[in-house]
Nucleic acid binder design. Sequence first.
DNA 1: TAAACATATTGATGAAACTCAATATGTATG
DNA 2: CATACATATTGAGTTTCATCAATATGTTTA
Lengths: 103, 103
Amino acid sequence: MADETLKIMKALSNDTRLRIVRFLLKKEKCVCEIFPHIKRTQSTTSIQLGKLEKSGILKSRREGKKIFYSIRDLRVYDMLEFLDNKKGKILKKEYYCTDTCKK
Amino acid sequence: MADETLKIMKALSNDTRLRIVRFLLKKEKCVCEIFPHIKRTQSTTSIQLGKLEKSGILKSRREGKKIFYSIRDLRVYDMLEFLDNKKGKILKKEYYCTDTCKK
DNA sequence: TAAACATATTGATGAAACTCAATATGTATG
DNA sequence: CATACATATTGAGTTTCATCAATATGTTTA
């Protein structure tokens, strides 16, 4: 799928995934914190986290047994700030996720 | 669905619908212009236009036999400008679609 | 008012997506 | 190195969605 915007829209077009991303806006979280908060099973949560990571919206890192997820694409941060809170601004493009910040 | 942001994401999470919205960004268009452009049948196009209107993103007006669709929710305009073109800014909220501009 | 035109709706079909329980994988610890 | 813990994967069941052809609705015009 070449359409970057479409990819983002699809990634956020599901309640479970949108709630995950919102939960991560302020700070990274491990899976064991996320799935009780969004009220889904561990397996469901893991699957949706995988999709969000694959789409480029989230990234993850391991720390001991735990895996922490956080926002990679900061455009999403501003988009949600804007749509959810009716405020927020779009920053200039240099600020955002580029090829160099992948993975 | 109470979640306004989720509603917008869902509305734009489909290639056909996203292409329709992009085609309408500059100027309203009638159905007979839209469906050849996005390369879908008339019926498919009509269905997706209906969903976009129901979600609050588009509005329509009749002129003779033709029905013209255009962008109602201007947040979508800026969102796409931003995501598609890596530029654009978020304007202040008074600018956007409010309860009073519905229908 | 009948025919032509523009759009909407319906019904059928196939594809894609969500969710969960169960199981597998990988990491730390006693 | 065996057990516990954290996360990922698999398989089944269900639902949702997109699309198209055919048909219906509504509007203009001859």
